[in-house]
């Protein structure tokens, strides 16, 4: 029996629930893997104008994890549309473009431009950008329900494309932010981005990142990310996309059982470029072996017994 692997994220239909996460995938990987076997590709976050990024070192390894502080290096929207977008295949693998900005107007302008491009299947809103209030920076947008609501609502009004809101885990109650972006019109909520973290070289006494602090990803964060997906799943009606340390199909199945309609593979691609493709095949096999007719039957199907 062949399992129906398709999933729906709002109006976006994916051939399977496996996506590659923003910032961890580029056209370079076409040489190493079968990109067409992925459900979706999320491109590296772009901003309206280019950004130079943070000083090195930008990455550091920790126990079963990786710290990064890239600083959203990118050449801006125009360069992306002209030079990067054509490198991605147009086919049954959905292309989702991740955007960020310092101001609402920047998000709106990017959403309007992307709305015109046929190849773009959806927009992922990276809400882990500085929250500028009264000219001062107050944490990240995704740490503020109201600011998150306002950005998602503004983007919603400027495009018909399906919207995925990417949340930071660095909050007290992530489900409240998820509810806010749902109210604002997001088609799906993605949890989670990296955990704020740092590491120090005790010989030089220097931080291991040039930016001093950064974000932790990789298998070290998986159980925490999983619980956040579960928390969100219990509070919203829109699909949840799970991410955080997924290394193999077992991890992916865990996320789906805890409520994720789809999953994203990030850091694992660096370890093994073929990870996402292997997960797509692995989930298919898992479903077939367990008599699952549609992969979406897994979503939230955790067996917690009688409550």
């Amino acid at each position: 029996m062949k399992t129906d692997m398709t999933v729906k994220i709002g109006t976006l239909k994916l051939k399977n629930p496996v996506m590659v996460a923003s910032g961890t995938f580029g056209a370079e990987y076409r040489k190493l893997i079968d990109v067409g076997s992925l459900g979706a590709i999320v491109t590296k976050t772009i901003t309206l104008k280019g950004r130079a990024g943070n000083p090195p070192p930008r990455v550091a390894e920790t126990s079963s994890g990786m710290l990064n502080s890239i600083g959203l290096e990118n050449r801006g929207l125009d360069d992306f549309i002209r030079n990067k977008l054509p490198l991605f295949p147009s086919g049954k693998t959905a292309l989702i473009v991740s955007i960020a900005g310092d101001k609402e107007t920047e998000f709106i302008q990017m959403a309007e431009e992307l709305n015109k491009i046929k190849k773009v299947a959806a927009i992922e809103i990276n809400l882990s950008c500085p929250n500028v209030k009264h000219g001062a920076r107050e944490g990240l947008v995704a740490q503020d329900e109201e600011a998150s609501y306002n950005i998602v609502r503004a983007v919603r009004a400027s495009t018909k494309l399906p919207l995925v809101a990417k949340l930071t885990p660095n909050v007290t109650d992530i489900a409240r932010v998820a509810v806010a972006v749902e109210k604002a019109g997001a088609d799906a909520v993605l949890a989670v981005n990296t955990f704020a973290a740092m590491a120090v070289d005790i010989d030089t006494k220097k931080p291991k990142l040039g930016n001093v602090t950064g974000g932790l990803s990789g298998p070290a964060i998986k159980p925490i990310a999983l619980k956040m997906v579960w928390d969100i799943y219990n509070k919203v009606d829109i699909p949840v996309i799970g991410a955080g340390g997924i290394m193999n199909y077992c991890d992916a199945a865990e996320f789906m059982l805890c409520g994720a309609s789809a999953i994203q593979v990030g850091t694992a691609t660096f370890v093994n470029p073929n990870t996402a493709c292997e997960i797509a095949a692995g989930i298919g096999k898992y479903c077939a072996e367990n008599g699952v007719k549609k992969v979406s039957e897994l979503v939230g199907n955790i067996n917690i017994g009688a409550l």
Binding site: T24, R58, V59, F270
Partner: peptide
């Protein structure tokens, strides 16, 4: 030499 993650130009983790 620089600390690297992807090694193929994707992650932008090894700037000079």
């Amino acid at each position: 030499e620089e600390k690297m993650a992807c090694g193929v130009g994707v992650c932008l983790g090894c700037p000079v």
